[in-house]
């Protein structure tokens, strides 16, 4: 059930950002929405459960995008690893730091993208455009990221509770 929820969320986000959002000029600087889900997995779910999801999502995004194959997958894995690493030293889940998780994840993704792009394009052309886009994406991430995390957490916990109740019913408890 949980994996079905993950699949549904990922599919919705992918479709949303490749169809509707891609056509709306206001969202030109909107960040990759799947980053929010990867951040959620990093924050609240286990490694065993998250890695297969991240690999699947990264694979799908790499196939849909014109980016060098593996870039999205690499970015998502680094984001996941970065969040897990950060959580070893900081109480992220229960503090205001949770607000900055998505912007940080977006930053990690964009740094990786920039590394690839700088290899192909002269930095003089890329740097101003990159900083402008990064600024826009961080703004959006700061604005909307916490809401995405809240949404996933609420739905995921409800689904888990529902699944646990059904299991208990089946066991006659």
């Amino acid at each position: 059930m949980t994996y079905l929820f993950y699949a549904l969320v990922c599919l919705s986000l992918v479709v949303l950002e490749t169809t509707i959002i891609a056509d709306i000029a206001v969202f030109d600087d909107l960040y990759d929405l799947l980053v929010t889900f990867v951040a959620y997995l990093g924050l609240y779910r286990s490694i065993k459960e998250s890695i297969p999801v991240i690999i699947c999502v990264g694979f799908v995004m790499d196939n849909l995008s014109g980016a060098p194959f593996g870039l999205y997958l690499t970015a998502y894995l680094w984001i996941f690893a970065g969040i897990r690493f950060g959580m070893r030293y900081l109480q992220v889940r229960t503090s205001a730091l949770v607000m900055f998780v998505v912007p940080i994840a977006v930053f990690i993704e964009q740094i990786l993208f920039a590394a690839v792009l700088f290899m192909q394009t002269p930095s003089g052309i890329l740097a101003p455009l990159f900083s402008k886009r990064l600024g826009g994406q961080l703004f959006w991430a700061l604005l909307t990221g916490p809401f995405f995390l809240m949404f996933y957490e609420v739905f995921d916990s409800r689904i888990e509770k529902w699944a646990a109740d059904r299991k208990a019913e089946r066991n006659g408890l």
């Binding site: 891609a22 056509d23 990759d32 995004m61 849909l64 995008s65 014109g66 980016a67 993208f113």
Partner: peptide
């Protein structure tokens, strides 16, 4: 055209 590249850095369509 049924989809566009999710990244602003790369330009592909489906």
């Amino acid at each position: 055209v049924i989809g566009k590249d999710p990244s602003p850095w790369f330009k592909t369509i489906i």
